[in-house]
Design a protein around this nucleic acid. Structure first.
Length: 334
DNA sequence: AACATTTACAACCGCCACTCC
DNA sequence: AGGAGTGGCGGTTGTAAATGT
């Protein structure tokens, strides 16, 4: 019902419009208005279907169309509107004068989606990405971001790039792990989550606690005694950022335990492939993680500092040479 | 320089909702 | 009421340009 077959007509031209065709269409519409799109091509002397003419006019030839790069303000507006409206491109377009729905849709798919992913934001839900795949990949990721073992032969800018990446990656990891562990989700039995937290995340929670002043531990001393970081300035930066993350996510209860901040709403789990993610698979995934981390967990138990939780994961010289910012981002953006 | 791969975006396709008769 | 005609929308594809090897 309702579909007209004009685009299936034999002999009707398809594909890119030529300047001559554009000119014919513009001149005709300026003179007569578009009227019925179905009958326009014949009247305008165009060998195109009406739908093609309508699209060409509304998306490219209309005089009120704003061409050129999207400004930052427009980007922000699109992201905001998308978070509210979803893929309602025409609705979004009505709030951006001069921009077409097609243009906004294309810009979203080619630029903004990637931008959000790189920022660790799910472009569909507009919430921080939380994904069990990240935990599964944790040993790899940490090994690739271990500052201590970065090759000293790297030049300073490369070193800075790596340390920035490491800093970003660690914050991402902590945030994501805490989201996973704090999300009530029937798929993940509490005992498994607790085991995971006790094993692998002992060091992280200690670190967060120490930062909160909940464990009597001089943070400066902690940093000095830690031999994980070669560069104390970087270490300090990392601690500050983790601190910020912590403040957003946690507060201390009366017992001195770290608890989720009351006013913080943890995002729900977002699977990288929800269609394939069965609860059995996820449970297996968690169990695998626990078993694969059991050795480093044992190491954690005898750790002298919370930073040791990151240890046992090494960055070979070859890795150091081969890895770059992009590699790390790829690992944390799925 | 040549070829392969990736990116950007114009254009198309098919579905849906609305209006008219 | 319901079928036909039409416009609009969102998803997808095709391809030129840019970039990498």
């Amino acid at each position: 019902m309702g579909r007209y077959p004009c685009c299936d007509e034999v002999g009707v031209k398809k594909g890119p419009w030529t300047p001559e065709e554009d000119q014919k269409l513009v001149e005709y519409i300026k003179k007569n208005g578009h009227g019925s799109w179905r009958h326009l091509p014949k009247s305008a002397g165009l060998n195109r279907c009406g739908k093609s003419c309508r699209l060409r006019w509304t998306n490219y030839l209309r005089p009120d169309i704003k061409r050129g790069k999207f400004e930052e303000e427009e980007e922000r507006l699109i992201i905001h509107l998308h978070s509210v409206l979803g893929n309602k491109w025409s609705s979004i377009a009505t709030r951006l004068p001069g921009r077409t729905d097609n243009e906004i849709k294309n810009y979203w798919n080619t630029h903004l989606k990637k931008k959000l992913l790189l920022m660790g934001i799910d472009p569909i839900t507009h919430r921080p990405i939380t994904n069990l795949d990240l935990i599964a990949n944790l040993p790899n990721l940490l090994s690739h971001t271990n500052i201590k073992n970065l090759s000293i032969s790297c030049d300073q800018s490369l070193h800075q790039l790596h340390t920035d990446a490491a800093q970003f990656a660690r914050i991402q990891i902590i945030q994501s792990l805490l989201h996973v562990l704090s999300s009530p989700h029937p798929t993940y039995p509490a005992d498994i989550l607790l085991q995971l937290m006790n094993n692998k995340l002992e060091g992280i929670s200690q670190l967060v606690s120490a930062q909160a002043g909940l464990i009597p531990n001089d943070i400066e001393g902690l940093k000095q005694s830690s031999n994980v970081f070669d560069d104390q300035e970087i270490a300090s930066k990392i601690m500050d950022d983790i601190s910020k993350q912590r403040d957003q996510l946690f507060s201390a209860n009366a017992d001195g335990a770290v608890v989720a901040a009351a006013n913080y709403s943890f995002p729900s789990l977002v699977s990288s492939s929800p269609e394939n993610a069965s609860s059995v698979d996820h449970q297996k995934q968690i169990e695998q993680i626990i078993s694969s981390n059991s050795s480093s967990a044992a190491a954690c138990s005898s750790s002298s500092t919370p930073f040791d939780a990151w240890d046992g994961l090494h960055f070979s010289d070859q890795d150091a040479a081969e890895l770059g910012w992009k590699d790390i981002l790829e690992q944390i953006s799925w």
